[in-house]
Design a protein around this nucleic acid. Structure first.
Length: 586
DNA sequence: GGAAACAGCGCG
DNA sequence: AAAGCGCGCTGTTTCC
């Protein structure tokens, strides 16, 4: 009954709203349960962390603020963690688009809440700097973060939720999204334990020793020389696609672009060193020594996560490329001495989410307790696991050609409910409609110009070229909405997983602080904590004696997330789980 | 001379 | 062997 526990609020759900007041002070408004008295107080910047910690200990309220990204980092720095929050800016963007909200005009009018906070901009609230001015009195418009506007937005949002067609689902989504905001700030504060020596070793092995500034590494220089010799062009730039393409043509290599997948089909002696050069160039520019200098300090890599940064609800990152760390650098992700990494990823998250959403019994059965793709092979639908994978991805992404185009029709016969769900989402998108995830995040409506252009092109007298272009545009949008419902619901599952895990880990006992683990700061060097998240994968950094318990917590949380989203469904979400000192390359 | 777009490639 | 969805980041080219 995990679901009921979250949906029907406990008897006295205090909310504590944080906002900027006058004179650089912060106002705290405690919204109590009915019948109790509303209370508020304000405090100076240097008193804030202590005041928040005291209220958290006494009432454990849901903290309401403009953005976790603006308020939470300095609380964490002061050693304060919070259990739950309501992130108005993230929630605003969900509610104003959601099809489940009946009346969103008020929210849409408050468009100052639509702007995502620029993570590079220093936080503009709480008056924690000495130079803070009293913004409240000097501005005319409503400003997120000021206490009056914060309370007004909370009221708008509560009305929108209470009046929605499916308030319980929306409440789950909002709680999960807000938990994500806490987690993102905590992940950044804790940092990813990073072994600079190992990273340097991988770079040196691949590229040669670190060159002096401005120079290219040895092995890139020699690979480039091989390419130029083979092309008979001693000066050609390998970093300029147009120039390189012309040089390739002059050497008789018939390609339409310089991308690796097109090059690798050709026999020419320039191809092998060129592909080698491209690999090295990529590693150097994206995650080379300059990246190490910029992003890793005191054994921690601290990327910037952007919760809700993708339309589907997935996280994005901004700076540091947290979600694109190449697998070959994974071994640099390494536990502090005396600590361990507990890594877990969900097998075939998206297909399983689709199976659960559509309650497709055959598809659920194919994945029950094992690899879903192997299950499809065993059911006799295809002959190889690779075929099953390509077919399922084609179903999720709207593939029509090649292997996936051949397998999808067979999947449609075997898994009719699952396929009907994604096919329906695609049809809605092609018509210009909106689709919605399991918990209520809706896809953005198409631009007005798009709808208009489609209507014009669909007139019988429209030029054939225009009609063709219009059909292609419709299909593009259909593939987007087809994938949106699945990718978005998978993101909701992952948030629920992490939210449950985070609360379990917070109840772990404290251990003695370790010298190297202390690089994670006062909060995260005394017990197991989340260190990494990547769509369907988490890594917990744990004192060795807590690693087994952390693994159990990860599994329990995955089960809890499944029950929370799909109560009563037989769907399962098996994990690949490993306890190691060093992350595996795979 | 700086912003925007593109190419290419890393991740799920 | 690539395709079909969603991203970020770098270096280069193009545009204003």
């Amino acid at each position: 009954m995990a679901r009921a526990g979250l949906v029907t609020s406990p008897p006295s759900p205090a909310w504590c709203v944080l906002g900027r007041g006058g004179g650089g002070r912060t106002v705290l408004v405690l919204l109590p349960a009915e019948g109790e008295e509303l209370s508020h107080r304000d405090c100076a910047p240097e008193e804030l962390a202590e005041a928040v910690a005291r209220i958290e200990a006494e009432h454990s309220p849901r903290w309401v603020w403009s953005d976790a990204a603006a308020w939470y980092p300095r609380l964490l720095a002061a050693g304060v963690t919070l259990e739950r929050c309501h992130d108005l800016r993230l929630v605003h963007r969900i509610l104003r688009h959601s099809e489940l909200v009946r009346e969103a005009d008020g929210l849409r009018a408050a468009d100052e809440w639509d702007t995502p906070l620029d993570p590079y901009e220093p936080p503009r609230e709480t008056g924690a700097t000495l130079f803070d001015i009293d913004a409240g009195s000097s501005r005319s418009g409503a400003v997120p973060g000021e206490i009056e506007e914060t309370l007004a937005e909370l009221t708008r949002q509560r009305e929108a939720i209470d009046g929605s067609r499916e308030a319980p689902r929306l409440r789950l989504l909002i709680a999960a999204e807000s938990a994500g905001a806490l987690i993102a700030a905590e992940l950044q504060a804790a940092g990813i334990p990073w072994d600079v020596v190992e990273h340097d070793r991988i770079l040196t092995e691949a590229l040669g020793p670190r060159p002096s500034p401005g120079a290219a590494p040895e092995r890139m220089v020699s690979a480039a020389a091989e390419v130029r010799t083979a092309l008979g062009d001693p000066l050609v730039s390998l970093d300029s696609p147009p120039k390189l393409l012309r040089a390739l043509h002059r050497a008789g290599i018939d390609v339409s672009s310089t991308s690796q997948w097109e090059l690798q089909g050709h026999e020419h002696p320039a191809v092998e060193p060129l592909l080698r050069y491209k690999k090295m160039s990529r590693l150097l520019t994206a995650n080379g020594w300059a990246w190490l200098d910029e992003w890793v300090h005191e054994d921690r890599y601290r990327p910037v996560y952007v919760p809700g940064g993708v339309v589907t609800g997935r996280w994005a990152s901004s700076g540091g490329g947290a979600l694109q760390i190449p697998r070959r650098l994974r071994p640099a992700l390494c536990a502090a001495p005396g600590w361990l990494l507990v890594s877990a990823d969900v097998s075939q998250l998206e297909p399983r989410v689709l199976a659960a959403m559509s309650a497709d019994r055959q598809m659920i059965a194919a994945g029950a307790g094992k690899d879903l793709y192997s299950g499809i092979v065993e059911a006799g639908i295809v002959t190889t696991r690779q075929e099953a994978k390509v077919g399922v991805l084609g179903a999720l992404y709207g593939g029509t050609t090649g292997d996936s185009g051949r397998v999808v029709p067979r999947l449609r016969r075997t898994f009719p409910e699952a396929m009907a769900l994604v096919d329906g989402a695609a049809a809605t998108g092609e018509r210009g409609g909106t689709v919605t995830t399991w918990l209520g995040r809706s896809s953005p409506a198409p631009e007005e110009s798009w709808t208009l252009a489609q209507r014009t092109a669909n007139q019988p007298d429209a030029p054939a070229g225009e009609q063709e272009r219009s059909r292609r545009s419709e299909r593009d949008r259909g593939r987007f909405t087809r994938n949106f419902v699945v990718q978005g619901t998978a993101a909701e599952w992952a948030l629920s997983w992490m939210a449950a895990l985070r609360l379990r880990l917070a109840r772990f006992p404290e251990v003695a602080e370790d010298e190297r683990a202390s690089a994670s700061g006062p909060v995260f060097s005394r017990r197991a904590h989340l260190a990494f998240f990547l769509h369907d994968e988490v890594i917990v950094h744990a004192p060795a004696e807590q690693a087994e318990a952390a693994a159990t917590a990860i599994r329990e949380s995955a089960d809890a997330a499944g029950r929370l989203l799909f109560p009563g469904s037989p769907i399962d979400f098996p994990l690949d789980l490993q306890i190691t000192e060093r992350s595996a390359e795979k």
